[in-house]
Amino acid sequence: MRERQPCVYLLASQRNGTLYAGVTSDLPARIWQHRNNVVEGFTRQHHVHDLVWFELHETMESAITREKAIKAWKRVWKIELIEKSNPYWRDLYAEIGV
């Protein structure tokens, strides 16, 4: 995975646990920040650290549009999205070129 690649991602606290949708241009660095509680907020407060899904985009504008759409989805749709590519909810952090 190349650096500075616009990306939408979903984090989970555990399988079927609390979910968080985010957008970034540097996925490895952003997930590291979540995992190490560098950023105050929702993921730190609710221990949401496992990268369970991500999607690369050509532009930050398209990534932000997709993130906003996913945030508006019903929870069951987000779970279906995760389980399509990651049925066991593996933490994908080690696979993103950290």
Results as ranks from 00 to 15, higher is better:
Arg2Met: 10
Arg2Ser: 11
Arg2Val: 08
Glu3Val: 07
Arg4Thr: 07
Cys7Gly: 03
Val8Cys: 07
Val8Ser: 01
Val8Leu: 04
Tyr9Arg: 01
Tyr9Asp: 00
Leu10Phe: 04
Leu11Ser: 02
Ala12Ser: 15
Ala12Asp: 05
Gln14Pro: 00
Gln14Asn: 11
Gln14Glu: 14
Arg15Asn: 08
Arg15Trp: 03
Asn16Gln: 08
Gly17Ile: 05
Gly17Pro: 04
Thr18Glu: 14
Leu19Tyr: 02
Tyr20Ser: 10
Ala21His: 03
Gly22Val: 02
Val23Phe: 00
Ser25Asn: 15
Ser25His: 12
Ser25Trp: 10
Leu27Asn: 04
Leu27Met: 07
Leu27Arg: 02
Pro28Val: 05
Pro28Leu: 06
Pro28Tyr: 08
Ala29Leu: 14
Ala29Trp: 10
Arg30Trp: 03
Arg30Ser: 06
Arg30Pro: 01
Ile31His: 01
Trp32Met: 06
Gln33Leu: 09
His34Lys: 10
Arg35Glu: 13
Asn36Gln: 13
Asn36Glu: 14
Asn37Ser: 13
Val39Pro: 00
Val39Arg: 10
Val39Asp: 13
Glu40Phe: 06
Glu40His: 10
Glu40Asp: 15
Gly41Trp: 12
Thr43Phe: 05
Arg44Ile: 08
Gln45Gly: 06
Gln45Glu: 15
His46Gln: 14
Val48Cys: 07
Val48Ile: 15
Asp50Met: 09
Asp50His: 09
Leu51Phe: 03
Val52Trp: 03
Val52Ser: 05
Trp53Met: 03
Trp53Tyr: 14
Phe54Cys: 01
Glu55Gln: 14
Glu55Ser: 11
Glu55Phe: 05
Leu56Arg: 11
Leu56Phe: 07
His57Ile: 01
Glu58Leu: 04
Glu58Ile: 02
Thr59Pro: 01
Met60Lys: 11
Met60Asn: 11
Glu61Val: 06
Glu61Cys: 03
Glu61Asp: 12
Glu61Pro: 00
Glu61Arg: 07
Ser62Asp: 15
Ser62Pro: 04
Ala63Trp: 00
Thr65Gly: 06
Thr65Lys: 11
Arg66Asn: 11
Arg66Leu: 11
Arg66His: 13
Glu67Phe: 04
Glu67Trp: 05
Lys68Trp: 10
Ala69Thr: 15
Ala69Asn: 12
Ala69Phe: 12
Ile70Gly: 00
Ile70Pro: 00
Ile70Cys: 05
